[in-house]
Design a protein around this nucleic acid. Structure first.
Lengths: 138, 138
DNA sequence: CTATACTGTGACTATTATAATAACAGTTAT
DNA sequence: ATAACTGTTATTATAATAGTCACAGTATAG
């Protein structure tokens, strides 16, 4: 178990909703599939709801369903929705004045890693929930 | 401070070595630039050494220097050397038998995320230590 | 208008991963 | 022999994450 479980759980939930074909589901039902507590599901689901990926209704017989067709939800949308961390973190440290490397490495690294982050996000943008779902049914 | 500091520290160390233009340096000296203990530096340095990115000599007046020219060391080399974690982890859970999603999502996610990982690595491969160093001097 | 069944959220605990330090064994110039 | 370095193990401290519990808010149904 490592850093980014929440992202994969979010995809799992969305895939579950997608397989319902527009039918509504409760957090309890989804929790059984993911095998966690309904509470944990709701917390992730709430983020997806705020990002506009799912619609939820409260009150008795409250439920949730996809807000868009699976083909119009990219993994990048999910990545942003769950507020996943950047791929690389840069270490904090007190720059040592006389050292050129120490004083400027952070800026140089940020520039380089921004490219990498962009490449990763572009790749995520190219995969939709529909792709995931179609793989499930093979 | 987050997940992947070791990668950025490794780049920092290599950049430091690159700025020495082949001259040798000790872990103590590098530690001052990164602002950590020599011990921590050596641990990271040892990984880089095993990966063939730096050469070290032991004994009195032991030291380290780059094994190749900065232009021939890519950030992907560094990424592999420090054994950084994958971009995305997939959650563990007990698949619930009657549920298609639960049983197959892991496989589908792995397939999708392999693409993303590859995109990220390709991006890292395109950046060399020389690029980083030239940014330092601006 | 009360009971019910859901979502949304805050507080809390447990667990894991990482950072960081210290200590020592191995090695080689002087 | 001694000194000064690397390599490695063991240990502790700290931070991030996973996971649970409890309750407030809300809408439906009787």
């Amino acid at each position: 178990m490592a850093v980014n479980t929440q992202f994969s759980i979010a995809v799992h939930l969305l895939a579950g909703l997608a397989c319902q074909d527009g039918q509504e589901t409760t957090s309890g039902h989804l929790a059984m599939s993911v095998n966690t507590s309904p509470s944990f599901v709701r917390r992730t689901l709430a983020k997806l709801s705020k990002a506009g990926l799912v619609e939820t209704t409260t009150g008795k017989s409250g439920a949730c369903r996809l807000a868009r067709k699976p083909g119009r939800i990219s993994l990048l949308d999910v990545y942003h929705a769950v507020d996943a961390p950047k791929v690389f973190a840069i270490h904090e440290y007190a720059p040592q004045k006389p050292c050129v490397v120490s004083c400027n490495i952070k800026m140089a690294l940020e520039k380089a890693l921004a490219k990498t982050q962009a490449a990763m996000e572009a790749s995520l943008a190219a995969i939709t929930l529909a792709d995931i779902v179609s793989d499930l049914k093979k």
